Amino acid sequence: MKRFLKILLFLTGVIFISANAICQEKTSSVSESDVKVEIKKKKKKKKKKKKIKLPNIDLSHWKVTLPVTNEEGKPYEIEPPEIFDFAKNDIAKPYMYIDSTKGAIVFHAMPTNSKTRNTKYTRSELREQMEPGNNNVNWTFKQGAYMKGKIAMDASTKDSNGKYHRTIIMQIHGRLTNEQRDLIGEDDNNAPPILKIYWDKGKIRIKTKVLKNLNATVPEILHEDAWGNDEGFNFKEEVGFRKFTLEVKVSDGKMVIILNGNEFKVYENVHMRKWGVFENYFKAGNYFQSRDKGSFSKVRFYELEVSH
């Protein structure tokens, strides 16, 4: 009897150990399988391509000026329809290109020998053309205009004092009609910019023009030296390198600039009324304000729209 009990206990132990081993083997097998599945999932995620993002910008009514020269030694420009394929243009690639991870057009500018008339600075900047390919069709304050952009500073160098270099990101530029040009004896149609919007050390700064003699009339008022610079205005919010929105609204005798839909600067005075004599066009991009060696800035435009 005792012998029988010993054999029974022995067999029971063997069965228990075997069952336990089988259970451990199954558990181990399932665990390894789970791990393999997780590894495969992670690999698939890594292999999965990042989603391509494109900027919401219609270039149908813009030309671009780049900080390089053409064969004639003038700043290189691309007008519609060639500007639609700027991403394939080898000359444009370093200075105006699409960042598909951010969904923006990047405008890159630095000091070069490519300078437009009456300035020592260079630009990678869009110029509005109401009629594609034609600079002679523009708008007046009385006709009204609106521009909105979603922008971010991508990168900027610093000066010898450790301050970021500034750049102009939006403008309203004045323009003489052919008749006005001939009336005052000028050799081009250039008139002063009534609006310059700067990215200035992380803040948004506005500069506009004021008439030196409020009693001036045509033709005196048409001369560039009849206008001076105002003191400038800084919005309170510091945008830094974050994304922000700028709006510019123009109507008869009035100009309004809006930052992020929260802060407003309104110009409605005799200077704006007098400015109504000029034609105008919008500019947007990167008009870099430094000649320091090795300096540069890159500005991202996610959205840009214009209406009249």
Score class of each variant (00 low, 15 high):
residue 2 K to H: 14
residue 158 K to W: 05
residue 211 L to C: 04
residue 54 L to E: 15
residue 198 Y to G: 10
residue 292 D to H: 11
residue 174 G to D: 14
residue 210 V to F: 10
residue 203 K to C: 05
residue 198 Y to W: 15
residue 10 F to T: 13
residue 66 L to N: 00
residue 195 L to R: 05
residue 235 F to G: 03
residue 178 N to Y: 08
residue 211 L to W: 02
residue 6 K to E: 00
residue 124 S to V: 13
residue 246 L to V: 04
residue 163 K to C: 09
residue 79 E to K: 14
residue 167 T to L: 02
residue 271 H to Y: 15
residue 161 N to Y: 12
residue 155 A to C: 02
residue 66 L to W: 03
residue 264 F to Q: 06
residue 196 K to S: 15
residue 149 G to V: 09
residue 284 A to M: 04
residue 99 D to N: 09
residue 98 I to T: 12
residue 11 L to A: 10
residue 47 K to N: 13
residue 125 E to C: 07
residue 43 K to V: 15
residue 167 T to M: 11
residue 11 L to K: 06
residue 147 M to D: 00
residue 61 H to A: 03
residue 237 E to C: 01
residue 178 N to C: 00
residue 294 G to C: 09
residue 58 D to I: 01
residue 291 R to G: 00
residue 253 G to W: 12
residue 126 L to I: 03
residue 14 V to F: 10
residue 87 A to V: 14
residue 289 Q to K: 13
residue 241 F to N: 04
residue 8 L to C: 15
residue 92 A to E: 05
residue 222 L to Q: 07
residue 237 E to F: 04
residue 99 D to K: 05
residue 31 S to G: 01
residue 38 E to I: 15
residue 53 K to Y: 11
residue 242 R to L: 09
residue 65 T to W: 09
residue 259 L to I: 07
residue 160 S to N: 02
residue 94 P to N: 01
residue 206 I to W: 06
residue 245 T to G: 03
residue 140 T to K: 15
residue 193 P to S: 08
residue 78 I to F: 12
residue 151 I to K: 07
residue 28 S to F: 09
residue 120 K to A: 07
residue 205 R to W: 11
residue 264 F to P: 01
residue 286 N to R: 05
residue 53 K to S: 03
residue 99 D to P: 01
residue 296 F to R: 06
residue 7 I to V: 13
residue 132 P to M: 01
residue 240 G to M: 07
residue 247 E to T: 07
residue 95 Y to A: 10
residue 223 H to K: 08
residue 169 I to T: 09
residue 132 P to W: 05
residue 40 K to M: 07
residue 127 R to Q: 10
residue 156 S to I: 14
residue 173 H to W: 03
residue 103 G to R: 02
residue 25 E to G: 01
residue 48 K to P: 09
residue 125 E to G: 04
residue 173 H to Y: 02
residue 31 S to M: 04
residue 288 F to E: 01
residue 243 K to S: 12
residue 51 K to I: 13
residue 210 V to S: 03
residue 25 E to H: 13
residue 253 G to C: 15
